[in-house]
Design a protein around this nucleic acid. Structure first.
Lengths: 234, 234
DNA sequence: ATTATCTATAGATCTATAGATAATGC
DNA sequence: ATTATCTATAGATCTATAGATAATGC
């Protein structure tokens, strides 16, 4: 379907038919992610994955060169799903600070729905080969970048002051992490707050910072671009 | 020295002399933590640990019943160190919102210093037996509890409004997690912010919420105690 | 002929323990 | 006699591959 760059092209395989590769890999990843969530990456054996996916261990190694490749595909699929959710919310969003609140709400709900999987990424990114750890971190950055976009649209509009680049970047990462916080402190938070209460309180927190922020304008550089948030700092 | 309950009494050992147990366990844990940070828990073998600690593999198993016990001791030591740092800051703290800022600053510096170790806890708590996972989470709660204490002292003093219990709990966890954020996003954040800049910006963020918070007073219950923050919600 | 799939297993670990040895104190 | 330490290894895996088999298309 898409000639789009997905970042998966370079997982090596012995199989020639690309559609078959895509189908079987999905099948294997779907089985693997459940096992990884339940048992962790290291305690899950390649045989268990093959069995749960309904293929032989030999076949599995035709589609993946090693166990780590399966984990990478799993991590990639998780990030794609989170990004999809946030992008959709961003596309729907109107304007003003209501737009930010809407995107945050949707993002936090995605985090809630994907709790186990986001947790998995925190726990197992480490188990990936360096080259793929980097990819996972890039995915994380891209998601934070979506929040920078919303903030940039807001900046200087209505009663929101002009926000400088670095302020927006930090706020974007705070939003990311406060969403993740629901996943890795849920064992505690959910005893005291419903998801909606959590969203409401954290949204107030974040909006408060933006509407009346002493830091936002302080070191106003001439740097005003709104779309390329990940450039190296000078 | 202390007959204080440390939560370590029930790691089983074959060795009778308690001082020796303490000494050798520290020696083993010190070696293990470095290996775990460098290679991860699962890729570190018990032989490597024994070798690095300068004891035989046989001796190691006299002081620990299994590899997971070593990990638990390591996690416990890390949390103790963090708690020690925050408690010290709390003891030194004056009053007013300056006290909160001082405690946050000290906590974030501890997180910075302990980056690798805090990261390890995020990654490997999962690898512990359930009973010890719980202990690790309790330790995390106790640290958040220290922040609740500072907030409670602040509540209603000077120009700070009365803060309700749930608001303080959430704010305390936010502080905890924003400190951790420096450890697991440091690869990105440190390219854009020095530690001190990070501390300053996040402190403004948190103080802003507390000084002018719409949520804090909203659902004012009669609940005013300041010292037992971890009761179940009614 | 080529592609996909399977079975069987080589080869390489790794944890935890059994049983021997050394050191200490009665 | 008791305590602490060590060496050697039992026993149990687990990943990844070699080589056989089945299915597809020329």
């Amino acid at each position: 379907m898409s000639p789009r760059h997905t970042g998966l092209e370079d997982i090596p395989t012995q199989i020639k038919n690309p559609d078959l590769v895509e189908q079987r890999r999905r099948q294997i990843a779907d089985a693997a992610v459940q096992l990884f969530v339940r048992q962790g990456f290291h305690k899950t054996t390649t045989r268990q994955i093959a069995k749960a996916a309904g293929v032989s261990i030999g076949s599995l190694y035709e589609y993946f060169a090693c166990k780590e490749d399966v984990l990478y595909l799993v991590c990639h699929a998780i990030h794609s799903e989170v990004e999809r959710g946030v992008s959709a919310a961003l596309a729907r969003a109107s304007g003003g600070s209501e737009a930010l609140a809407a995107v945050i709400r949707e993002y936090f709900r995605v985090c809630h729905r994907m709790s186990d999987f986001i947790l998995l990424i925190y726990q197992e990114t480490r188990s990936l080969p360096t080259q793929w750890q980097k990819r996972v971190l890039e995915n994380e950055l891209r998601i934070a970048g979506l929040f920078v976009q919303v903030l940039a649209k807001l900046s200087g509009s209505g009663d929101i002051p002009k926000l400088n680049e670095r302020f927006m970047e930090l706020a974007a990462h705070d939003i990311s992490v406060l969403g993740h916080m629901w996943t890795f402190r849920r064992w505690y938070l959910s005893r005291h707050f419903t998801l909606d209460e959590y969203i409401e309180l954290q949204t107030e927190f974040i909006l408060g910072r933006i509407e009346a922020n002493p830091a936002a304008g302080r070191e106003a550089s001439g740097n005003k671009e709104t779309t390329a948030p990940h450039k190296e700092r000078p």
